[in-house]
Design a protein around this nucleic acid. Structure first.
Lengths: 128, 128
DNA sequence: TCCACTATTCAAGAGTTCTTGAAATGAAAC
DNA sequence: GTTTCATTTCAAGAACTCTTGAATAGTGGA
């Protein structure tokens, strides 16, 4: 990822409502959620949600797709992964301390029920 | 990392000048750089730099330490790693697609000369 | 066709962030 | 002690972001 889209993605995430939207959309996977479902879950007005979803779509973090009278939004996982890769790699140049912290956080087990391959490998490496 | 410091860190990174500061400070490691060095490298005024460095320090991304008449700033790698771990793990719940993208970016070799253990492990996992 | 439903756009206003240059602070050198 | 250098603080203004509510635009069902 280049600097400018990374900056757009960071700006898009630097907002509580939008971070909440992301956290809601991630478990919804490729199917995503309708704008209205997101709005009611977060207790936000339709126009407010629309504003934030447009910001996230502009930044490439989510995609919209019409399904009947619903507009479904889903996370663009490639873009999200690209942002994290940019931070880890291009920005922090794979600094050992940063990578150790990532592995640490993963081993702490805050989130994933079934960690992805890269995560499992990192954990094994740490425990060796 | 909790949501609120993560949000502060994301806001701190969501600005071109501050992203430039980070990219400058990362290779400088623990020693860091004096405020004036950063300012002259980026071609920004002292007061402007001071504003952005204060924002980053507030967010926990950098630390300041006086050395004679110079104020040296260095990256808090633990905090930075914590942010990336938050995004990867707590926020994206270790989603396979996201992790694959991170590994992809790393394998592309944009940055690190000597990848950290977690990174090496991820790469090996991918190539298996 | 008309109505109900879902979502976006628009304009106004409040709030926040960023930049600028001048003044103040802090630390070393003379 | 005065001067010089490095940095921060302050106040003002410009620019941007966010929220609100009303108006508009699509879509499907009666």
């Amino acid at each position: 990822m280049e600097k400018s889209p990374a900056l757009a993605a960071l700006s898009a995430l630097a907002n509580e409502t939008r971070l909440d939207i992301l956290r809601l959309l991630v478990p919804a996977g490729a199917r995503g959620l309708a704008a209205g479902e997101i709005a009611s879950t977060l207790g936000a007005s339709a126009s407010r949600l629309s504003f934030h979803l447009a910001t996230m779509e502009e930044a490439g973090l989510v995609r919209a797709r019409r399904e009947g009278r619903y507009q479904r939004y889903s996370v663009d996982f490639a873009q999200l992964g690209g942002l994290i890769a940019y931070l880890t790699n291009d920005c922090c140049r794979g600094h050992p301390a940063v990578c150790a912290c990532i592995a640490e956080g993963i081993a702490g087990g805050a989130g994933a029920a079934r960690p992805a391959p890269a995560i499992r490998a990192a954990r094994q490496d740490r425990e060796r």
